[in-house]
């Protein structure tokens, strides 16, 4: 099971990185979203994997999964929505303003600032 989880994280990371290396904004946004999944899963994994022991206290139950990474990942998920939304509006503004959705600055600009 651990191998499945770890390989999922690895695959999401690889796919995310590959998309981040693309030259247009949309795939880069997709790539950062995939990286977000990977990072959140990794953080979640730092509490180790447990099945059937949610951190809801109940009488007579002594074994619970680690609640702390869950709390941290929960806010991370919500914040990452905010981040995606901001990045998308920036990308959108750039595209609508210049009719260009390239990630990199054009070559002739940026030479001198």
């Amino acid at each position: 099971m651990e191998f499945l989880f770890a390989s999922s994280v690895g695959l999401l990371t690889a796919a995310g990185l590959y998309l981040v290396f693309r030259l247009r904004t949309f795939p880069v946004i997709l790539g950062t979203s995939l990286l977000t999944y990977a990072v959140n899963l990794f953080l979640f994994a730092s509490g180790r994997l447990t099945i059937g022991a949610p951190p809801i206290l109940m009488d007579g139950v002594t074994h619970y999964t680690d609640p702390l990474p869950q709390a941290l990942v929960l806010t991370a998920i919500v914040i990452s929505f905010g981040m995606t939304a901001v990045v998308v509006v920036i990308a959108l503004g750039a595209y609508l303003g210049a009719d260009d959705d390239h990630v990199n600055d054009p070559k002739e600009e940026g030479a001198d600032t």
Partner: peptide, 29 residues
Amino acid sequence: GIVALAGGAAAMGFTYHLLMRDFVAPSIS
């Protein structure tokens, strides 16, 4: 693709390594 796969492999190795070991120090959880 090669760079991405290297990054993915690193993430996978790291995660797997972590998952197969207990906490080094007692957790505050």
